[in-house]
Amino acid sequence: MATESRPRVRVPKTAARGEIVEVKALISHEMESGQRKDSQGNIIPRKIINRFEARYNGELVFAMDLHPAISANPYIAFKLKVDEPGELEFKWVDDDGSVYTDKAKIDVKG
């Protein structure tokens, strides 16, 4: 949605020690490419999420740079090996400097 960005993440609540789990993250964002023009012919300034990072207990486990070709509401999924219980922290960085964050805990059984 154009007005505000809201993250959604899906992470399993529990995992076996050493298990590889799938982490999914979605954020609402218009991802304005900077290549479009408005009805007056003026370029609509670029406004995209340019960086995504995920940290597990403070350690960087996944990061990616995003570019203008990525569609609106980017959906990112990656695999994570869970060796210990902890907290995943997600961070999306916007062109305008805003940072959107979300968190999810994973408990380890056994």
Partner: peptide, 10 residues
């Protein structure tokens, strides 16, 4: 979860 339409539901 993957269905982006749910951003509008929320």
């Amino acid at each position: 979860f993957e269905n982006p339409g749910f951003l509008w539901v929320e």
